[in-house]
């Protein structure tokens, strides 16, 4: 295609963007708002997921051992555990160490424990970490079968709740996003409908002198793309700013919350938002051309 033809398309698209200033601004604002909300949801979901995975990877399975086992037997069991599939690390925690930990947790109220100190009721245990969260269940089952293991326990509830929350956020996010995308597409197609209407005389003449259908369509496609692109820019800026601000705040005041690093997550989010903006714009013009520009 000729350069002058593209120049023609761009000039036509620019003209109608300026001619319908109000609708142009309204469309851009809607695109921006939708993408902003989309971005916020995606960031929220990604971070919750990340937090849940981090916590899950920290899941510890504790295998409490029979009391009467001697050091060699414990050594043997530990070796057996090492050979289970999916094991990352095995730590022996003696009942004395366990009591020390308990004391630490009690902090200033540790005097409450003095009564049990003489007759330690805690058990020797093996603390096991798995390679992946998915290994937890099989490892637990494997541990239960070993002779000398009295009881197996692990903390799963909080993680399951976190994953459920992530799922819920994803689900509502998806619903909200679909609604917003629908509204955006509608507004863009309406803007372009106005352009088609404003340019009906030109379109009639173009048909008359033998312009091809795509020649007539291209300026409208470009107009839609521009609306999408222009809307994605403010959304992008706001999302990036907001996340940097949020991440800095969290790192400073709540450092134990494992937020995703801004650079890594934004690198993926930015092209996504721009791409979606353009997609929504293209979709809007496609719909409006299908309905109002029967060429």
């Amino acid at each position: 295609m000729r350069f002058s033809t593209w120049e023609f398309y761009l000039r036509e698209a620019g003209r109608s963007l300026i001619r319908n200033r109000f609708m142009t601004l309204a469309s851009i604002a809607t695109v921006a708002l939708s993408l902003l909300i989309l971005g916020a949801f995606l960031l929220g979901a990604a971070n919750l997921n990340h937090i849940a995975s981090t916590l899950e990877s920290q899941v510890e399975v504790s295998a409490y051992l029979d009391e009467k086992l001697g050091p060699e037997e414990i050594e043997a069991i530990s070796a057996q555990v090492q050979r289970l599939p999916g094991i990352r690390q095995v730590n022996f925690v003696s009942k004395e160490e366990a009591l020390e930990r308990l004391k630490e947790q009690f902090g200033e109220r540790r005097d409450l424990l003095t009564s049990v100190e003489k007759n330690n009721p805690l058990r020797n245990a093996l603390e096991v970490r798995t390679q992946t969260p998915a290994d937890v269940k099989p490892v637990v089952d494997g541990l239960k079968k070993l002779a000398g293991v009295a009881k197996v326990s692990y903390k799963e509830e909080i993680i399951e709740r976190l994953f459920a929350l992530t799922k819920a956020i994803r689900f509502t996010g998806l619903a909200v996003i679909i609604l917003l995308a629908g509204a955006t597409v509608f507004l863009i197609s309406n803007t372009i409908r106005l352009t088609v209407f404003a340019r009906r005389r030109e379109i009639a003449i173009m048909k008359l002198v033998g312009a091809t259908d795509w020649f007539i369509r291209w300026p409208f496609v470009l107009e839609g793309l521009c609306l999408g692109l222009l809307g994605s820019i403010p959304a992008l800026i706001l999302v990036v700013r907001f996340y940097h601000w949020l991440a800095a705040g969290v790192y400073e005041t709540l450092p134990f919350i494992p937020l995703l690093h801004p650079a890594s997550v934004l690198n993926r989010l930015q092209p996504l938002l721009v791409g979606l903006g353009i997609l929504v714009g293209a979709l809007g013009s496609a719909i409006s051309m299908h309905r109002f520009l029967r060429v």
Binding site: M1, R2, S4, T5, F8, E202, I205, M206, V209, G210, A211, F215, I216
Partner: peptide
């Protein structure tokens, strides 16, 4: 010129 532009 419009008539020529639109036929490229």
């Amino acid at each position: 010129a419009f008539a020529l532009q639109v036929v490229e």
